[in-house]
């Protein structure tokens, strides 16, 4: 086993899948000669050639439109949207077309595409390079939305996404790309989409998160362990479909739930987890369900102080956890 960064794990996953299956192609802005803005496809053009590693114009709608067409004709495209902030032009293609084919053809035609997109803040990215968008796509039936947080999960989940017959939106937190390292097996493995992972066990409260904030939650849980508060940290990994079983099992144990994400509070993933718990978990609750999320402002600001103010940081998470533990 080797220790890898998240970006390395993602690169490995794509390379291995492209070697395994000649139908897998990548396309996007600068994915070819430049190897992608974050070097996710570095070296791919030399190994797989221009036919399978396609540099596209700066037109996101056409990237996904092309991918859908290729998929309908038998390929398994991986489309890269350079920053999630630029994802909006693809909505019509992804939501209006890709997500409906399977349903509209009564299961006869599927669209096996993966749309990869680096998202999230704490990178001094300002209004146009820091956004989270899972809350928008979360609402759309027919899509799967994956948000891994560790190298191991990123690789296993990306392989599953590529092998999946339906469209998968694969959000990669760009801050984790090079800051998060972890062991990744050398052999081929996949992680099923729709299965959460209990990253830390605890009995006092359950915290649900994904992406960068998952790591903040783990740090916070570690800090609170010194106060005798045992926090269970659940990495949702896939936000759509949600792993309702794992979520409910955790809250049945602890009776308390905190959902942490960087995406805006209102209508975010946390709202759905809350609704699930209020419905199926009501009689197990020992405290109000709490959310600690990005505020309802249009985007993450540029100034580092304001970035900190926007972000559910470790300190804020510690406060929220402590309050809930004491409740």
């Amino acid at each position: 086993m080797a220790v890898k960064t998240v970006i390395e794990a993602i690169r490995d996953a794509m390379r291995e899948e492209m070697r395994r299956d000649s139908r897998v192609i990548v396309l996007g802005e600068d994915v070819g000669r430049r190897g992608g803005v974050f070097l996710a496809t570095e070296g791919f053009i030399d190994e797989f050639g221009e036919e399978r590693v396609i540099d596209t114009p700066l037109a996101e709608a056409s990237i996904v439109g092309l991918a859908i067409g290729a998929a309908l004709n038998g390929l398994r495209p991986i489309a890269e949207i350079q920053f999630t902030d630029f994802i909006w032009p693809i909505v019509n293609q992804l939501v209006g077309e890709a997500a409906r084919h399977h349903y509209g053809t009564n299961g006869q035609v599927s669209v096996p595409i993966v749309v990869r997109s680096p998202y999230g803040g704490m990178v001094r990215g300002g209004l146009y390079h820091s956004q989270s968008a899972e809350g928008f796509f979360y609402h759309c039936p027919g899509l799967k939305v994956v948000c891994p947080s560790t190298p191991y999960d990123a690789k296993g989940l990306l392989k599953s996404a590529i092998r999946d017959d339906d469209p998968v939106l694969f959000f990669e937190h760009k801050r984790t790309y090079r800051t998060v390292r972890g062991e990744v097996p050398d052999e081929d493995y996949t992680i099923p989409i729709g299965v959460a992972d209990v990253k830390r066990e605890g009995r006092d409260l359950s915290v649900f998160s994904y992406g960068l904030t998952l790591h903040y939650c783990l740090q916070a849980a570690e800090a609170l362990a010194k106060e005798g508060i045992q926090v269970e940290v659940v990495d949702l990994r896939t936000v759509k479909p949600l792993d309702t079983e794992t979520i409910l099992a955790s809250v049945k144990k602890t009776g308390k739930a905190l959902i942490v994400h960087e995406d805006n509070l209102t209508g975010g993933v946390g709202a759905e987890v809350s609704a699930l718990l209020a419905d199926a978990g009501f009689t197990y609750l020992d405290a109000p369900i709490k959310r600690l999320c990005g505020p309802d402002v249009p985007a993450m600001p540029f100034a580092p102080t304001l970035e900190q103010a926007f972000m559910p940081t470790t300190d804020k998470i510690i406060d929220a956890m402590r309050h809930l533990a004491r409740y």
């Binding site: 009776g255 009501f282 009689t283 197990y284 609750l285 020992d286 405290a287």
Partner: peptide
């Protein structure tokens, strides 16, 4: 005392 939570009632 504050009200009993659902799990406590259960």
């Amino acid at each position: 005392r504050p009200p009993l939570s659902p799990v406590v009632q259960r």
